[in-house]
């Protein structure tokens, strides 16, 4: 393929994109307005299903299949990272040196850990009521675990982080989402249909399958981030390739 031909293909693609983009933009509602045709319908549907947070209703009920896709993207990318950052045969593990952390920081880390964990779980559990949900809460939970590395010591983190269970939790969260969706099929409705009782509006148990799916995503995301960061930490602190063991060779 010559350079000229490639440029032609690029120009063709760009032109087509520009045309479609302009056509789409022309149909958009004006910026900053407080009414939106899709918004009105989404809010109506959310209220019908007793879900106070419309965003959660869209993510986990009206467009739950899209969220399954997003969750799977995270799952697959973590899997890819695990494979890429594994310890290869020409690398070896060293024991990282403990680095001193001021007592004050250590105490703060140990106190903040349970609080952060609790806030993460709160955000997961209240996804159907207030801003937040499985993804946001899951990341907060994972951050809480890593306070042990940030504010205490790497070995303290390793003690509470046997990777096996987290890898299983990652897969289990993903599976729970898929299976909850299949529950809709069993009940005679569509895949990922909201078949559970909707509950009382603005309570923790409202929203039917929304809190369940939120919990599944929360478990998946928390475990995925822990597994992901474990690989990064391993590479940065423990694994050494033969080529970066300079002094030993010279």
């Amino acid at each position: 393929m010559s350079r000229r031909f490639r440029l032609c293909v690029l120009a063709l693609g760009l032109l087509a994109f520009a045309a479609l983009f302009t056509a789409a933009c022309a149909e958009l509602p004006p910026f900053g307005g407080d009414r939106h045709p899709y918004g009105d319908r989404a809010v109506h549907a959310a209220l019908l299903r007793h879900t106070a947070n419309t965003v959660s209703a869209v993510n986990f009920d009206q467009r739950a299949l899209d969220t399954l896709g997003e969750e799977s993207i995270l799952f697959a990318s973590v899997l890819g990272t695990v494979v890429l950052l594994r310890q290869t045969s020409d690398e070896h593990r060293t024991v990282p040196k403990p680095s001193p952390v001021p007592d004050r920081t250590r105490r703060y880390g140990l106190l903040a850990l349970p609080v952060t964990l609790l806030i993460g779980l709160y955000v997961v559990a209240h996804g159907q009521l207030s801003p937040g949900g499985g993804f946001q809460g899951g990341v907060v939970v994972a951050t809480a675990v890593h306070l042990l590395y940030i504010a205490v010591d790497y070995r303290a983190l390793e003690r509470v982080r046997p990777l096996g269970p987290y890898e299983i939790a990652d897969a289990a969260g993903e599976a729970a989402y898929v299976l909850t969706g299949a529950g809709g099929l069993l009940a005679g409705a569509a895949y990922l249909a909201n078949v559970l009782p909707y509950g009382t509006f603005n309570t923790l148990s409202s929203g039917g399958t929304v809190p369940l799916l939120n919990a599944a995503v929360g478990v998946e995301v928390a475990a995925a981030v822990v597994v992901l960061l474990a690989r990064f930490l391993g590479q940065a602190l423990e694994i050494e390739g033969d080529e970066d063991r300079g002094e030993g060779k010279g």
């Binding site: 880390g109 609080v115 952060t116 207030s130 801003p131 937040g132 907060v140 951050t143 590395y149």
Partner: peptide, 22 residues
Amino acid sequence: AYTDLALVVSVLGPAGTLVFVR
């Protein structure tokens, strides 16, 4: 409900700073 954002920042903000310190 927007106070949840402040709640999250109140723990994650210091955690982020400690990442840089570390």
